[in-house]
Design a protein around this nucleic acid. Structure first.
Lengths: 233, 233
DNA sequence: AAGTGGTCTAGACCACCTT
DNA sequence: AGGTGGTCTAGACCACTTA
């Protein structure tokens, strides 16, 4: 099997490989603990060692696999304790970013945020929140971009997209979606009032809510089987 | 010139190259904006393209250079605004880590932290704080390790070591060293009392103090010349 | 001492930016 | 179209782990 048969031109082999492996990990096809040896990947995808190595290093940077020197790569578990860690990390970053953003937010940015909020409310009310996940990401990114702290913003984005993929798998609980809307409204109000202290309190509460909802969804998954592999999936 | 002539066995070429380039960037020999073309590095160090590419990617991951697709790599400025960003980021991480660490700290860990604190006080009192920088790093790492949040801890370490290198260049101001000792004492007291709220307040103040001291040292450097290149260096 | 994993070279080729 | 930068291959060699 040669991965290049199905490659669009312009996409480097290592990127195609990375995306492919990432999808397999997040879908559960490659479960936690699965070993990824260079040799097997070289054979499986019909490429040489270098692009395989680069793809693996990239996935290690994303936190999806772990490369132990002279032992090879293995898929990391995305279990409850790691998910909690990542939510805590993201929460700390969000508290910083929103605080730094306050003085930089323009009226135009505020209007855009309010517009996104309205679209989300409409979706939740309609009972079909198909884009809720994407809109929510846009909402937070829009605000945090104004913090003008590239370092923190980049790290936030890396982990937000990891958690985003989890969300796409598990979805939002109905209660959480409603609560989210209320909290977004509070965030917008506090931003207008430029009330930093309240803002940090709200954001921390917002992040904790997201964390607890996700952890509950994961715990409820009593069969300990990845959602994509369940019968009703 | 071949870098391998001066390489200890067991150290891969890309690692030697990475370390060498990092040192040149941080020492100011490669100033902000300097372009690092693969071709010139291949020629200069007598190696092939692959290790050069890996070294550059690694430095990009550390935030020292920027690789623009099809335009090549360039040294990023480590200027006042970026340093401020990184201090803010590190501060947010420290607040999180200390909060998470509180319930996990053992008596043994507390004793070790207190011992490090005593050694630092002795150094500052003696007027020759040669190891202050390293002891300070050990002090904070010891505490934050107990947060048991690998993700946050790793990112903290990455940026702490970058700022550490800056500190090695600029040193501590005398006033800052004394203030640091007082703040460490407060941290130890609050840890013993398991007073989370106070702890976060102190840590934030501690990080802000470090940031302001460093920014002042950088601003004072009126000639806008890297310290290592000054006459009196 | 195998066996596995990690890295390097040399040359070729492809993709994108600049004229 | 030319130049630069980016990537791939194939094969070789080195280093570490395991038995």
């Amino acid at each position: 099997m040669n991965i290049k048969m199905e490659m669009e031109p312009g996409v480097p082999t290592y990127a195609a490989l990375r995306d492919r492996l990432r999808a397999e990990i997040l879908s559960g096809k490659l479960p936690a603990g699965a070993r990824l040896t260079t040799a097997s990947l070289v054979e499986r995808f019909g490429v040489s060692q270098m692009p395989v190595r680069e793809a693996l290093q990239s996935l290690e940077g994303e936190g999806l696999i772990e490369i132990a020197p002279h032992k090879g790569a293995a898929v990391l578990p995305l279990d409850v304790s790691r998910v909690r860690n990542i939510y805590d990390l993201r929460g700390a970053l969000e508290a910083l970013l929103i605080r730094l953003a306050v003085p930089n937010l323009s009226n135009r940015a505020m209007a855009q945020a309010a517009a996104l909020h309205d679209r989300m409310k409409a979706e939740v009310a309609s009972g079909d929140p198909a884009d809720l996940f994407s809109l929510n990401q846009q909402f937070h990114q829009l605000l945090y971009r104004h913090a003008e702290n590239t370092e923190a913003f980049n790290i936030y984005n890396r982990y937000a997209s990891l958690l985003g993929t989890l969300r796409e798998t598990y979805g939002f609980s109905k209660a959480r979606a409603n609560q989210m809307m209320d909290e977004h409204q509070e965030i917008l109000d506090a931003l207008r009032a430029q009330d930093e202290r309240r803002l940090v309190t709200i954001i921390e509460h917002h992040c904790d809510g997201a964390k607890l909802d996700m952890l509950a969804l994961m715990q409820d998954d009593k069969q300990h089987v990845h959602p994509s592999l369940r019968d009703n999936a």
